Simulated scan of single mutants.
Amino acid sequence: MGGDEVFRIVVGVDGSAPSRLALEWAVAEARLRHGDVKAVTAWQFPPVTVGMEGLVHDPEIFPQAARRLQDEALRRVDCGDVNVSGDVVQGSAAGVLLKAAGNADLVVVGSRGLGGFTGLLLGSVSTQVVHHSTCPVLVVRSRTGDEA
């Protein structure tokens, strides 16, 4: 980051409690660094819909649901004077976050998302981001360790 450049933070938002904490942390850090936050939400068609187009009456239901989820998360955080933008992208969560973080100074993720393996310390997305990001990564956990 140069002298007059803005510190850019990318944060993954999936509606889970850890992602809400990650968003709060990203906004607080951006406030300290006079930076910007880009909240990124990824969505994919469920595998069962592939080849069954007749069963999905409105293909826009998935990106619309992702946008509502992100909008709700952004409403719950006091962004104050921090410039926060949102992006909803089709693709795998890790891939979308890694691409978005390509020109970021920091990427922030929750320790676990909405996956079903509740005993894991790190979820699959946070693990992939930690291992493959080209910028620093911060993984946010709750203070109590209760990720529900």
Rank of each mutant, 00 (worst) to 15 (best):
L106P: 07
L106S: 03
C135L: 10
D14V: 06
T49Q: 08
L69W: 06
V129Y: 01
V84F: 05
P63C: 10
L21W: 08
D78M: 03
L98N: 07
L69I: 10
E60W: 07
L138D: 08
V77I: 14
R20I: 08
L114G: 05
H34P: 01
R33V: 06
G116A: 15
P63G: 12
H131A: 15
Q70H: 06
V137K: 11
A148W: 04
P63V: 12
V96I: 12
F117Q: 10
V10Q: 03
A94E: 10
P136Y: 10
G102K: 14
V139R: 04
G80E: 12
I61D: 10
T134W: 06
W25E: 13
R143T: 11
V129P: 00
S124F: 01
R31T: 13
G35C: 09
A42M: 05
C135F: 11
V77Q: 02
G86E: 10
N83C: 09
Q70W: 01
E29F: 02
D36V: 06
L120Q: 13
M1V: 14
I61W: 11
V107Q: 00
L32R: 15
V50P: 00
Q90P: 04
V27T: 11
R33L: 13
E60H: 12
V108A: 05
V27R: 02
G95A: 10
E53R: 07
T134Q: 15
V109H: 04
S142H: 08
D14Y: 05
Q128T: 14
V84R: 04
L114I: 13
T118P: 00
V96N: 04
Q64W: 03
G116N: 14
R75I: 02
S111Q: 06
L55R: 02
W43K: 05
S142I: 00
A22D: 07
G119A: 15
A104T: 07
V56H: 00
D4K: 14
